[in-house]
Design a protein around this nucleic acid. Structure first.
Lengths: 209, 209
DNA sequence: ACATGTTGTGTACGACTGTACACATGGACT
DNA sequence: AGTCCATGTGTACAGTCGTACACAACATGT
């Protein structure tokens, strides 16, 4: 058999996944979506769904995989653009926020999934976050920015950083994407959170003369 | 008209709210619950629902109010038990975790609501968290534990503390309530997060000689 | 004692749900 | 060429959904 899939490979499949993201972007919760509703949004007949997914959770899991790609793209861009260490936090948070805006539905789905009803999706998203945190730790190690921290302490710090940024997602949910002022407030606050955390990390274990 | 409600006041109402919590406790997501399902769980006929709530969101909002009471009870207990400042974090986190276990469904509902599909419920929960953070700031001020911080910086710190603790909820969701070891791990990690934040706050704005 | 308002029940209906099945299409293989 | 198989469609059905309506029970104010 061949490598290429036939026809337009996964055309309907993509339509279905996009349909879910569209609905989530409109404010719906993933857990409340039904097969018929999704296929209707995708402009496909309901039975087509089963050609690509066993059920909604299956589709959700494949969305998590795509989410992983989005996160990796974001990480790569961050690594390319963060040149000077003093603006590291501002740059990174800026990139995060702009990615969250550009892929709003994706990140909404991520925020929903963390406390969603499918255990598998929860685990998938948590796993993505752990990977993200460990990559961040590697970067900081490579930049020699945390030499005084043990591996475990650095991991914890990065975990906290990722969590804080992820929590900002629930803030971004609350404001319309066009409300520049509110978005800017969230951006600034997230920066301050990270600064506070890094000040803590800098003084960790050697609490001042 | 009288003060007392008639009969067993709000008997069915309570049964309906408990039913939602029961279903959420079983792993269901609030957004995926229907009126019929809830009334079935409560052992009531579907139409009874409308005697007490206009729709599911209305019920959710009233659950948020009750959640506020739970949080206040927890805060009071924390204030009574936290006597010595050096064990402050451990004590507080311990009380939080034990409350989260005792009212598992309530806190599950809270975690779900943060990224749920009802905007009103989102706002309600966020408002509870803000209140919680401001109370925490007041306590720290009263204990003279953050005199070097401006009001704004103290508020930010407490905001970050509350967020970090709230995020631990999504960890607690993932483990069965009986898995003592995992729960203990989460408790310890949350403590370390808070310690890191407080170290950061202690060195905030006077970054070492 | 009576009228009133609140709470719970039973029935009913139209819309929507998930999914099973038979069938059409067309590219990829021998 | 013929065959296979992944993909998409149409129809169908039993179950569930939200909710409207009429009625029963009963605590209350007069």
């Amino acid at each position: 058999m061949s490598e290429r899939k036939r026809r337009k490979p996964g055309e309907t499949r993509d339509k279905l996944m996009s349909a879910v993201l569209t609905l989530v972007g409109k404010g719906r919760h993933f857990a409340s979506l039904g097969i018929r509703e999704v296929t209707r949004q995708a402009g496909v007949v309901p039975t087509s769904f089963y050609r690509h997914f066993r059920n909604m959770d299956d589709l959700g899991l494949q969305l998590v995989d795509e989410l992983g790609l989005v996160l990796r793209r974001m990480m790569r861009e961050a690594r390319e653009n963060v040149l000077q260490a003093d603006k590291l936090i501002e740059e990174s948070v800026g990139i995060f926020v702009s990615h969250a805006q550009a892929n709003r539905s994706f990140f909404l789905f991520m925020a929903q999934g963390l406390a969603g009803e499918s255990r598998a999706i929860q685990d998938g998203i948590r796993s993505e976050m752990r990977y993200f945190a460990s990559e961040l730790a590697n970067d900081l190690r490579r930049l020699k920015m945390a030499d005084h921290l043990s591996d475990g302490d650095l991991d914890m710090t990065c975990d906290l950083v990722v969590r804080s940024v992820a929590f900002s997602l629930t803030d971004l949910i609350g404001v319309s994407a066009e409300d520049e002022y509110q978005v800017e407030q969230i951006r600034k606050r997230t920066c301050r959170f990270l600064q506070l955390i890094f000040v803590g990390a800098a003084h960790w274990n050697n609490p001042q003369p």
